[in-house]
């Protein structure tokens, strides 16, 4: 029963994809006659001059994607690096910033969750800092850190800390009283209670925070790299826009989506290990 539902969903997905690609092909495929136009201007306008669109067809994209995938790691100078290298730069920044944020947010969240005093004291800071767009920190980061790569890591850090911090604090604060009472009546020490009772009890909530954070970090890195330039998939997108290579821009969009999905799925698999049902 379940299997046939899966099959139906898959069929529908394929049909939708085919419709989308077909529509795209029809919309941008060159047709009709070229209008009267100055030859030089026509050359400048490329496909538009021939009555088509500058947008590539799905086949162009597929060809270009294949070119990227078959040689992802070439390096021909600062403006021409393989997509693999660019994605690796972005991933490295995201992961470094993200793990530093986790290393700060999870212990701090524990503290806030366990102590109402700390919760009250830190709450105003969190409330003010949380809604700030991470990119607003960029000039300050560039001025103080004086390194664009480290600045983008900092931006990732600052944007991924909040969901992890708040979810950890919430998860820790809402551990069932009963479980804490069990630990108390068994004279379990504070540290053992934290690791054997509170951490596993709050783990699913913490993991939710970590999934939200990685998604935000991956969204923000593209924008951050567009700003600071140099390397990374965000820079790649902007560079290809300057090259007016819409094909490559679309390829990059697809790669960003794929990597984001892989990151989320990886954390999802990990969170399945720590969830429990009551």
């Amino acid at each position: 029963m379940n299997g046939s539902k899966d099959l139906q969903a898959l069929t529908l997905s394929v049909v939708l994809l085919a419709l989308f690609l077909g529509g795209w092909q029809l919309a941008v495929g060159g047709s009709g006659t070229a209008p009267q136009m100055d030859p030089e201007y026509a050359a400048l306008m490329g496909a538009t001059a021939k009555g088509g669109s500058a947008l590539p067809t799905p086949f162009d994209i597929a060809k270009e994607m294949w070119r990227h995938i078959s040689d992802p790691f070439y390096d021909k100078g600062p403006n021409d690096k393989g997509i693999g290298i660019q994605l690796a730069y972005s991933l490295a920044r995201v992961l470094i910033g993200y793990f530093i944020a986790a290393a700060v947010a999870i212990p701090l969240g524990f503290l806030i969750g366990m102590s109402p005093l700390f919760y009250k004291a830190l709450d105003p800071f969190i409330q003010i800092l949380k809604p700030i767009s991470p990119l607003a920190w960029m000039p300050l980061a560039l001025y103080t850190i004086k390194d664009s790569g480290v600045s983008s890591v900092f931006v990732i850090f600052i944007c991924s800390i909040w969901p992890m911090l708040l979810n950890t604090a919430f998860g820790v604060a809402s551990v069932r009283r009963d479980w804490l009472n069990v630990a108390k009546t068994l004279e379990v020490g504070r540290l053992r209670t934290a690791f054997r009772v509170i951490l596993p009890a709050a783990a699913p909530t913490i993991m939710t925070g970590m999934r939200i954070s990685i998604a935000i970090a991956w969204l923000v890195i593209v924008a951050a790299e567009m700003l600071v330039g140099g390397t990374g998939v965000g820079y790649f997108v902007w560079n290809e826009w300057n090259n007016l290579s819409i094909t490559n821009v679309i390829c990059a969009i697809l790669f960003i989506g794929l990597v984001g999905m892989v990151l989320d799925q990886a954390l999802y698999q990990f969170s399945k290990l720590v969830t429990y049902s009551e």
Binding site: R176, D178, W179, N181, V182, T185, V197, P200, A201, A203, V274, Y276, S277, E278
Partner: peptide, 13 residues
């Protein structure tokens, strides 16, 4: 003193 809680209070994990 050991307690048996009304809601069993077992750790679900």
């Amino acid at each position: 003193r050991a307690v048996v809680f009304q809601s069993h209070a077992l750790m679900p994990w």
